[in-house]
Nucleic acid binder design. Sequence first.
DNA 1: AACCGGGTGTAACACGAGTTACTATTCGCC
DNA 2: GGCGAATAGTAACTCGTGTTACACCCGGTT
Lengths: 353, 353
Amino acid sequence: MHLKRVRMVDVAQAAGVSRTTASLVLNGRAKTIAAATRQRVLQAAQQMGYSRHATALALRTGRTRRIGIVLNEPEDFDEHDVYFSTVLAGITKGALSQDYNLVLHSCHYMDWHELYSDILSPTADGVLLVGRFIQDPLTPALLDAGFPCVCISYQVSHPDCYSVDCDNIQGGYLAAQHLFQLGHRQIAFLYPGETVRWGRDRLAGAQQAAVEAGLSPPSFHLYQWPDDGNMPSEASIHAAVRFLQTCRPRPTAMICCDELRAQSITECLPSAGIRVPEDLAVVSFNSTEQSARTRPPMTSVAQPLREIGFAAVEMLVDLIEGREVAKRCLRFPMSLDVRESCGARTIPAHSVR
Amino acid sequence: MHLKRVRMVDVAQAAGVSRTTASLVLNGRAKTIAAATRQRVLQAAQQMGYSRHATALALRTGRTRRIGIVLNEPEDFDEHDVYFSTVLAGITKGALSQDYNLVLHSCHYMDWHELYSDILSPTADGVLLVGRFIQDPLTPALLDAGFPCVCISYQVSHPDCYSVDCDNIQGGYLAAQHLFQLGHRQIAFLYPGETVRWGRDRLAGAQQAAVEAGLSPPSFHLYQWPDDGNMPSEASIHAAVRFLQTCRPRPTAMICCDELRAQSITECLPSAGIRVPEDLAVVSFNSTEQSARTRPPMTSVAQPLREIGFAAVEMLVDLIEGREVAKRCLRFPMSLDVRESCGARTIPAHSVR
DNA sequence: AACCGGGTGTAACACGAGTTACTATTCGCC
DNA sequence: GGCGAATAGTAACTCGTGTTACACCCGGTT
């Protein structure tokens, strides 16, 4: 039942030439081949529906024209986590424009060594590592092996590390500046703690805004949420609400570095006697469609995730094809989608798209 | 800077044997090889960090251990369309358990012929085609070529077509049955029309429920929405609302075959003087997190998308590896997540997860 | 006739692996 | 001591392609 593949040698035979000649013609290296012969070969190829055997080509050239993608977990596509799908949308577009295919490396997070050798097989010409954890041994190992890598939304300290990220410092600055301009002075800052780089950076940006607003030394009411994965537990949400209730002096605003948490917390606030935005203004991060649909619609700092994915592909392909890459770390500015959770009037906001 | 790869011949040399011997040992075909020699080879391989060259292996064996995925559009990962990411979550899990990698074929929808030859390169051992359109020429072409395919959420009439889908007839039945049990008799049915199979099937199911409820001949107020892609246009939403307003006899309930549309329409209803659920009970399809977050939370028929993705991988791998596949079309039952948009009290619903 | 040189095309090798058929050595047994 | 069988290992081919070095032909010049 299986149709036999048409190989180059079949085309050559049909055109009455050697395989070498066919190869030269089909690769445009046909300087020394007579025009008539070339036509014969091209026509035969066309007619027989010939296309190169990808694997053989890859073996010979050492290039697969594929880009690998490593996510943190097999479950990363969970509908709850819009982050990966959006970055992936950008990556897909980038790969399309560069004429590369994408490989999703399937692997449990833990057995990084298996993943390591799968990548170095090599299954692809380079790999995009999406938002891995700082302690992850995989990235340095790949870099040590000299394998082309681009990190998305994180970076490691290694001379060969290239990365694309959003400018979290500037993002934190935006969030805080907005609140300061609205007159807030007591601000709760909810984040994953200093160990997570984007958490650290966003806080740093917020503190910078505080300094510029004349609040020195800058002081936020810090709350570090427990490390419980993408889906925050109910207990962790309640703990955050309790923090907001008991914190003194009472905060009039909160910056929450995660949209999903911000949303869950906000939903619990009314029953804790806290109204949004009257008693507590809220700014979250990662402005997605979700933020527009909450009550009240939530002001949120947006990451340009598609652009990040797209740029990461571009950078990786430059690396693969040996072109010079100007900056080791590309940073995209974040933007503030002003909605209603801060009591500011709704300005036609920078569209999410 | 690039570390030279360790090849099998290097391992063999280090162990003082021929490459053939090394190959036999490393593939467990070492029946005729002395235990001592085998140990030497294994140890050398271990020590030098040897791993097979994936491309060479694929060329020789004719198996890439990759599964291709074809989506409709490069933009399918858009955050608006949770469908693909959820199916992909299931596929990822399936691929992981079967020890296959995944290839995302990047391609514009239109130039199907380019995609066709990319698939037949072959980039993967088989391909999952996710929710393509009926008119799509790609699927029959691949089937004609004898390439292993599994269709997800659609099917074509071809003797070799294998597919995994949810049972849309039963889903339509569930939706209508729920409304009939609540006493509704005048029901608007919003769907993409007869040309889209799942639309047709859901209607058929609903009609079956009507017959069983003693309403014969079954009559719904049919509304066919225009084909405007995943994101419904504002105009199309308004048109639907107008339909609900002007339709006589006045419907007391609506079944909308798409969650996103149902949601947008529901948001417009108050301003049209229609309250949900008092004036109009609403059942939608594709129950995702979104449905739980609307006001009121929306009753919706859920597709087991993860299970579908997972099963599709299983089926495809069976096909690839030449095992017998019992059923040509695997159908998963849908389930009803009862929320508040029908006025039924909230029953602890079948969890989305 | 011998030599040169441009125009055409091909034989042969390489990429890194799996597999088959065959050689070489040792062992057991009569 | 000789013969067959079992044991241990390898040369040579294959997968489908890109590339390099070379062979051949033919016309023109010395």
